[in-house]
Design a binder for these strands. Structure first.
Lengths: 303, 303
DNA sequence: AACGTCCTTTTAGTATCACTTCATGGACCC
DNA sequence: GGGTCCATGAAGTGATACTAAAAGGACGTT
């Protein structure tokens, strides 16, 4: 069953003559006649009959023409299917974020609502593997240290946070009494670092480089909540992001005075996914949440 | 939007690789790849993406594939549309009959029921125009005198009645006292005939030919009910069909002894219409009604 | 690290098919 | 009985979907 032949048949039902159909479809009457003949070849009963000098549909022809209308509408819907997928504000948006960002952003994202249906996932992976996550998630919230190689050009990047990394100390620690710290202060401290390949490691290496000697890495803990607990227990000091670190009464953050260490938190989206309006709006919500997060923290510091 | 391309896309969603799709559709992977490329050309967003060494659908591709399923079902329905039209027992059947047959058959046909939806119409036309009525009616109940040219071969003919034509006389008429009549008895009577071209005229001409002299035609009345009333009023005698003539207490029918005049009542159906099961079953009902009509009349005569 | 396998894509060539043009055959109207 | 309109057939042309063959990547193995 060829949709074009069906369309010709339907048109014949509406217009009542081969010539009129030909005019409507911008072809010659001969073409229409041949299409009808081809359609007839695949049908055991006559679909058309001559009425005077014009050609009209038989009952069977009308039955088939009615089915042809359904075919045409289904095709039209297919034509629009991609566009509707792009513009549907209630579409499903899959968001992935590394642990600490997930802990901070996901609750606020769910509260902010929006029309999109959200599928959230936490994904803590090595820095190089963040872009690959965009295969399975519409929005990937990733992080990397300042001065590390930028995300590949194949992904669309939306900056969310530019977050200083402070030194986390237990409240009783001698350095905790100071307002800020220098590289020399922390260079020889026992450190709690992250697993090899994970983003914050680069920042710690920058500190070691500035100090001129390797850092004394005691533990390797990726999860900030766990790391903070180990800091509180006196297991060492650690780098922690200023805005998204877990808040504990027995751990304080102190900025580094003489070395700029910070990380960037970005939303990675494949360019084609960024065409979906539900993705765009969700991305906007995430960006707003991040902005408020920065503002609130800066206000608190200033106050 | 080409349904074949859509089918390939859908198949890719189900099977997950170009090679599998090619195997399912009995073509080479190259053909599949080219069809997908062609479909992609008409779409602004990627429909497929490489996952490892196979090709999978993107979200947009899945959206389009879902629409493609609807297209496929619509096409399948179109494929079956004609067949369903043929086999639907509840289809509409349009029946036309000349006046006297309509008066006799239509009430019985409606009572007999059947699943078909009936559209009844009375059509009294000249003999030659009965076949043309099959253009507008599925079943045309027509009549013609014996020995008249048969119906054209393009129509399928179902004999319903072979009905003798008797002479209708008013009860007080001298000839009404006899059990049967001869041509000589009636040749010189004043006749009530039908309009020129209508079937029963041929039978009256046969009587005139047998008598060797033209009939004395006083009136020309097509409707038997009207003709019977005129006979009763003494306006003349008339030929009337034995089974379907209107019954009046003041009119009697007497057979002709020495000349066989009769008419055939047939159901005319176009061969392609005779494929519809609703038409077939209705035709069967009509034939049964006609058979019972003949049996009942013959029994009454014998008794 | 190199190789082989599997999958996809590209290129070139071929066959099919829908179209146009031109010509023919009915049907209707004066 | 021409003249007109309509539908259809034959021949030729262009687009296109296919196959075959080769090339390019990704993965697993040795």
């Amino acid at each position: 069953m060829d949709p074009r032949q069906l369309a010709v048949l339907r048109e014949l039902g509406d217009r009542g003559s081969v010539t009129a159909v030909a005019a409507a479809l911008f072809v010659t009457p001969s073409a229409v006649s041949q299409q009808l003949a081809a359609l007839q070849r695949s049908t055991p009963v006559p679909l058309t009959e001559r009425r005077g000098r014009t050609l009209v549909l038989t009952d069977a022809g009308r039955a088939l023409a009615a089915a042809a209308a359904d075919v045409a509408t289904a095709l039209a819907r297919a034509e629009r299917a991609v566009d509707e997928h792009l513009t549907d504000p209630r579409g499903t948006v899959r968001v992935a974020a590394f642990h600490s960002a997930a802990a901070t952003l996901f609750p606020r994202l769910l509260q902010a609502g929006g029309d999109a249906v959200l599928e959230l996932a936490d994904q803590d992976v090595e820095q190089a593997r963040f872009p690959a996550l965009t295969a399975d998630h519409d929005i990937v919230i990733a992080h990397r240290p300042d001065h590390s190689p930028p995300w590949p050009a194949s992904t669309s990047v939306t900056p969310l946070l530019h977050e200083p990394l402070d030194v986390a100390l237990p409240v009783g620690h001698p350095l905790a009494a100071r307002a800020d710290l220098s590289v020399a202060d922390v260079a020889d401290q026992p450190w709690i670092a992250v697993q090899s390949g994970y983003p914050l490691l680069g920042s710690l290496e920058a500190i070691a480089a500035a100090a001129g000697r390797p850092a004394r890495i005691r533990h390797r803990i990726n999860d900030f909540t766990v790391a903070a607990a180990v800091v509180a227990a006196g297991g060492g000091i650690a780098l922690m992001p200023r805005y998204t670190a877990p808040v504990r009464p027995d751990v304080v953050l102190r900025p580094l005075r003489d070395l700029h260490v910070a990380r960037r938190v970005d939303a990675l989206v494949r360019p084609e996914r960024a065409l979906r309006s539900s993705v765009i709006s969700t991305l906007g919500v995430v960006r707003d949440i991040a902005r408020r997060l920065t503002d609130a923290a800066d206000t608190a510091v200033t106050a």
